[in-house]
Write a protein that binds this DNA or RNA. Structure first.
Length: 686
RNA sequence: UGGGAUGUCGUCUAAUGGCAGGACACGAGAUUUUGGAUCUCGUUAUGGAGGUUCGAAUCCUCCCGUCCCAGCCA
């Protein structure tokens, strides 16, 4: 139960609105919908459904200079695709322009609105600041007659853009800036995508929105947190006009790690050509997710799972991926596709011979049926599935090793063919065991690895696009703020990898756009809706499979490389060190520490034991190999040092070291890094 | 330094004075013709200090952190 439904339950128990619940989803048609909008859509339509109520689709089209029919069309398509139906309740704020205008005249007649001749710049100056009250506009006390006359002439086009506004007369001293006589109409000559040039004045959101909600008798007007400060104005409009009282409720918008949710920035990515369009599969837009192969069910399940609250939050992209996998797992047929082919010749398989295996489309769902997969003497397997010198725990093919070809035979690698120039492996020679047909050995012997494969003679070539997260950092906004850099600096240069010459099993021939498959052992893939042709297929990777091998490999690599590359043996001066990404660097949690105590360690000729305050509830014990440079460690007490705070604690003979301090030097002479100044212990270092 | 919000596992979210629960992530194991899926088990949290109470995540006081607001955008 979220807090909004709790509010509704309470109202219902008091009999408010006679038990009626009516919500609305009110996008401005100035961009494509993204996953954040999906949250709002699921909320608004979901609440309506839960309470047997209704939800309207309303375009908040009060600013013609930014809006376009293209966006209206895409928004309707996306809401429908997500699985929601506004039935006959499609509305536009622009439908109410006449009524909205008449309400404004009413406010004038009640002495609650006035025409102001101040320029935009002057309005800003008169508004005051966060801490100082504003002052009244000199035009604030015009007579009702003069205001009415001026407002009518604004409408009829007598005055140039920006020369006058209609303002609500509230309180220039209000601590809430939104209540300091907000502008409710501006003069703006811009052709509206629906009303054309009928109007040259347009109502502002803060005024048009409550009026639209009220006219549609919306009971619950759900919007995001940043409008909390606008609620008093929302209520003011409805109260002063004496019309239906909708209730505004605010919730926290969705933030997703490794991506952006700002229409303005998404638009910029599109306009600068950083992505191919609003529906680029890397975009967090509904159109992008659809093209990538996401299902509406997955998005809805995700929206259900993240819940609704008022706390600012950052949802882990892994949660979205989980829901995508969960849904795709049960609905996609399996096929075999070799993305980076390595040729395999089965030496004891007769030349020219072919056979077919009947392999089910889904291991757990027989109702999906099966397909015939041809086999022959020449096959392709994945380059990653062979290693000449395999590390421990590598289950795949290696010289002399036997593995299973999925659904076919056991094969054993007997030879490796290399390019004489480059030394790269170009082909594998193998033999198969005819008695293992279907993939099981009659003698009961086991193999550790099962590989996917494609018959070279029957393979369907295709292009496959592999997508990674669009950005390198989890929280782009905070990273920009912290480093003062532009969000584009954090774009992932490897967010798209295009593979040509991928080899697919023939059952995919003629797959229509947006059809989805699991490529066994690889991930979920979807036929691209824009670029795929029946005779030249293009697939997008929706999401990888969970990959526990990748984890093993990663940790193995770290433990393999660390002792060599980053051990006490410092690299020679000027020695090349592999480049790291910013993301790699950001994994270090560097903190300011203040040395509280420092002492020599008995029986260790290099170590100094330090107690360092890093702003936590207790100081950390850190053992550092700096004794030669600091024979009297007391000199270190009080110094500010740089502490690697997220280093895994390390048990040593003389105690556990809970972190590391940075020092520079060579040989035995290592000097600790200090600060130019005295930052607080615990402060971030970057 | 004005006003408005908000702080619960690493992340998201429940618990309206009465056992801090779920999901993701992470870890261990079982199983497996996808290093997939499935199953089992596990680690980890109420921002801090006081107070009220038999009992506090919840109520009160103070402190701290974070977010939003000075468009004629929405």
């Amino acid at each position: 139960m979220d807090f909004i439904r709790a509010i509704i339950n309470e109202e219902l128990s008091m009999g408010k609105h006679g038990g009626r619940v009516h919500t609305r989803f009110p996008p401005e048609p100035n961009g494509y919908l993204h996953i954040g909008h999906a949250k709002s859509i699921c909320l608004n339509f979901g609440i309506a459904a839960d309470y047997n109520g209704l939800c309207n689709l309303r375009f908040d089209d009060t600013n013609p200079s930014k809006e376009d029919q293209e966006y209206i069309d895409s928004i309707m398509e996306d809401v429908k695709w997500l699985g929601f139906d506004w039935e006959n309740r499609l509305y536009y704020a622009s439908d109410y322009f006449e009524q909205t205008y008449r309400f404004a005249e009413e406010l004038i007649k009640k002495g609650l609105a006035y025409v102001c001749d101040l320029s935009a710049e002057e309005v800003r100056q008169y508004r005051g600041t966060l801490t100082e009250a504003g002052k009244d506009s000199p035009y604030r006390n015009r007579s009702v007659e003069e205001n009415l006359d001026l407002f009518r002439r604004m409408r009829s086009g007598e005055f140039p853009d920006g020369s006058r506004t209609l303002r609500a007369k509230i309180d220039m001293a209000s601590p809430n800036l939104n209540m300091r006589d907000p502008v409710i109409y501006r003069i703006l000559r811009s052709t509206h995508h629906r009303t054309g040039d009928d109007w040259c004045i347009y109502p502002m959101y803060d005024y048009a929105h409550p009026v639209s909600d009220s006219l549609e008798e919306i009971t619950h007007s759900i919007c995001t947190l940043e409008f909390e400060d606008h609620r008093p104005l929302y209520d003011w409009c409805l109260e002063k006009l004496g019309i239906f009282r909708s209730r505004q409720i605010e919730f926290a918008r969705l933030n997703l790690s490794y991506t952006l949710m700002s229409k303005r920035r998404l638009l910029e990515l599109v306009q600068m050509g950083i992505v191919s369009g609003w529906d680029d599969p890397r975009m967090p837009t509904i159109a992008g997710l659809r093209r990538r192969g996401c299902t509406p069910e997955a998005i809805r399940a995700f929206c259900d799972r993240i819940g609704v609250a008022k706390k600012d939050s950052m949802v882990d992209m892994a949660l979205l991926e989980f829901h995508i996998r969960e849904d795709l797992n049960v609905r996609t047929p399996r096929i075999m596709a070799v993305l980076e082919p390595l040729k395999v010749t089965i030496e004891n398989y007769p030349e020219g011979q072919t056979e077919e295996f009947d392999i089910p489309f889904h291991p757990d769902d027989p109702s999906m049926g099966s397909r015939a997969v041809p086999f022959g003497r020449t096959l392709y397997i994945e380059q990653d599935d062979f290693m000449e010198n395999p590390p421990p725990k590598y289950f795949r093919l290696a010289p002399g090793r036997e593995v299973r070809l999925r659904g076919a035979y056991f094969i054993t690698c007997t030879g490796v063919v290399k390019d004489p120039q480059t030394g790269l492996v170009t082909e594998l020679r193998c033999i198969y065991d005819p008695s293992t047909r279907g993939g099981d050995a009659p003698d009961g012997r086991k193999v550790k690895g099962t590989l996917h494969w494609v018959s070279a003679a029957h393979a369907v070539p295709a292009q496959v696009r592999l997508y990674e997260r669009l950005f390198l950092v989890e929280n782009i906004g905070s990273e920009c703020e912290r480093t003062g850099r532009d969000y584009k600096d954090f774009l992932n240069p490897d967010s798209l990898r295009t593979l040509n010459g991928c080899m697919l099993e023939p059952s995919v021939k003629g797959a229509p756009p947006l059809s989805r498959y699991q490529f066994e052992r690889q991930g979920y893939f979807c036929v691209d809706s824009a670029d795929s042709k029946p005779d030249s297929l293009v697939f997008n990777r929706t999401v990888t499979l969970r990959d526990s091998w990748a984890k093993v490999e990663k940790t193995a690599r770290v433990t393999r490389e660390t002792p060599k590359a980053a051990s006490k043996k410092s690299p020679a001066k000027g020695a090349p060190v592999p480049e790291i990404t910013f993301d790699d660097f950001a994994r270090l949690d560097l903190r300011v520490g203040r040395v509280l105590e420092a002492a020599l360690v008995e029986g260790a000729d290099k170590l100094v034991k330090l107690l360092v305050d890093v702003g936590e509830d207790r100081p950390r014990q850190i053992l550092a190999g700096i004794r030669r440079a600091y024979p009297d460690p007391a000199a270190l007490v009080g110094k500010r040092v740089v502490v690697v705070a997220n280093l895994k604690p390390r048990a040593m003979k003389s105690g556990t070291s809970e972190g590391m301090i940075l020092a520079g030097g060579s040989g035995d002479d290592w000097r600790v890094c200090t600060f130019d100044g005295e930052p607080e212990p615990g402060d971030k270092v970057s």
